[in-house]
Design a protein around this nucleic acid. Structure first.
Lengths: 314, 314
DNA sequence: GTGAAAGCGCTAACAG
DNA sequence: CTGTTAGCGCTTTCAC
């Protein structure tokens, strides 16, 4: 048996006589032989691995990651995870990424700024920025329509009688926060409703919980509605307000953003903008793997839909 | 410049004259050269990649995965994710795993049965089973002490006056369910408290929600306490019971298991057995990467601690 | 339908 | 300190 024949048995079995094929398979089973994907990758200049640079925190990213992994498995590819706890680690991570010749790269984090995107360009690795609007124009991107989503939520609360509102963001400098705030302000403005921006300081439950207590204590400044920029923060806000006896929708209208599974949990039952995550992930992978390397538009923006929950059921 | 010199600049810079080193670095920057980790792996028989076979669902696994990824990043290794939605996919996944010559493998799923573990043995790849008690003895494993944990929870509710109890498991055939149930029964038995096993059918919020409504409707069979086998299911149970006007701890004592971050969210504030996940993950990685390939005991069992929440605050 | 040979990009051993 | 050489395990012509 020559190497070549064995290789053919595992990659294009039809090019080998059935008899030989079986003999090779039998021998392989007996010896525990398994083709070496590393060697294959070296030769083929293709790894069948897609990398993802993702923050190591947060319900949203965990959820998205799970979906990427699921869809990649269906495409017989693997997900190589590069997670980081501190934005400062991103540069290091990028250099590591560069060494693995990945079939594609998912850049999903607000910590990936222009400098990092430029570096990624250099790597000449197919890349897609996921829900990171700031990357649009620099790198192909797939994003939910943040502005339209926020507008829809704003319209929703105005419908339900809101005459004053607060937007609770995670981190003010992120492009998602900015877009979501902008959308809200725009829509509310046309109805003569003011909307202040308040920063929770992180995209976490705890941050939401704390900021909610501040809001609750600041009695002068109560609003009819609170638009929270993300579901995870919103859960914290709900609980923080409850702690102070403020209940949605009784005392305030409240919305989230993202459409996490937990938003439908009866304990929260949050009105939120549901991202079509499956679809977003599908778009991202198509752009990464199927494209003739230059399709129509490189920046895809997909609309979300409102999920009406108890928190605005006034 | 010879290949060898360049290689040295990137792997052992001190073996190269500073002048040459800088020249090489400059050239690399200019040409965008980055060493190829695939080729390196082929030569070195070491990939710096650890694989993880994990179910594509569930809060708990997402949480664990995030920790693995974080700790691996610190060790300058990557996580290659093999997730699967159906147990039937596991065999396929294993064959894929086999092809990548990974530095280690984390087997974290009840769907990895004896047959699969045997296959893993064959691969001669350092492996550790994570929170999968059934694997103990077959493959090195790291597991929280399920029985002791359940006993502690059982003792806790007896302390608080429970005279009858129900254990709500996810899937009866899993070894975690069995151990947790067994622990509960053992402890409750010594206090003359009976404990029926009820199967939710999945380790999910929805399954918990549905089973809770059945339990609530079955008025003859009310118990003082419900021990739920996992937090995610417990969240569903809490909400399902609330829907029927049953509130913990007022009407029933309720506990979870796992210690997910959400358990401390004020909306649930669940009494649960908190797994020392960081520690478990650390143990797993040590066994995988640092071991002199045969340390003391291969099956590590780590105790958890009770997190007291509102749901048993009778 | 099968085998021989070259080469993917790197490293380690050995000379110089 | 630097270069030469061989080879990791696979695929891919190109002969036969």
């Amino acid at each position: 048996m020559s190497q070549a024949t064995v290789a053919r048995v595992f990659s294009s079995p039809d090019k080998v006589a059935p008899a030989t094929r079986e003999k090779v398979r039998a021998a392989a089973d007996r010896l525990g032989y398994v083709p070496n994907a590393i060697a294959r990758s070296l030769k083929a200049q293709r790894t069948d691995i897609v990398g993802a640079i993702v923050p190591a925190f947060g319900e949203y990213w965990q959820h998205v990651l799970t979906l990427f992994s699921r869809q990649l498995t269906e495409r017989r590819k693997q997900l190589l995870l590069f997670s980081f706890a501190e934005p400062s680690q991103v540069n290091d991570v990028l250099e590591t990424v560069a060494r693995y010749r990945l079939d594609g790269l998912i850049a999903a984090s607000a910590s990936i700024g222009p400098a990092q995107l430029a570096r990624i360009e250099q790597l000449a690795m197919p890349t897609v920025a996921f829900n990171q609007p700031a990357a649009a124009g620099l790198v192909p991107s797939v994003t939910v329509d943040n502005e339209a989503g926020s507008q829809a939520l704003a319209a929703h609360i105005v419908d339900r009688g809101a005459r004053s509102a607060i937007f609770v963001g995670g981190i003010a400098s992120t492009s998602t926060d900015q877009q979501r705030y902008r959308g809200a302000v725009a829509e509310l403005g046309t109805h003569g409703v003011a909307c202040r921006y308040v920063e929770a300081g992180a995209f976490s439950y705890e941050a939401g919980y704390k900021i909610a207590q501040h809001l609750a204590d600041d009695v002068d400044d109560r609003a009819d509605a609170i638009l929270v920029g993300s579901d995870e923060v919103a859960f914290g806000v709900v609980d923080g307000l409850r702690e102070r006896g403020i209940e949605a929708p009784r005392d305030v209208l409240l919305t989230g953003f993202d459409g996490l599974p937990q938003a439908s949990w009866v304990g929260y039952d949050l009105t939120t903008l549901e991202q079509p995550v499956e679809l977003l992930v599908e778009h991202a992978l198509t752009r990464l793997l199927d494209d003739g390397h230059a399709s129509e538009s490189t920046d895809v923006v997909v609309p979300g839909t409102i999920r009406q929950g108890r928190t605005t059921n006034a």
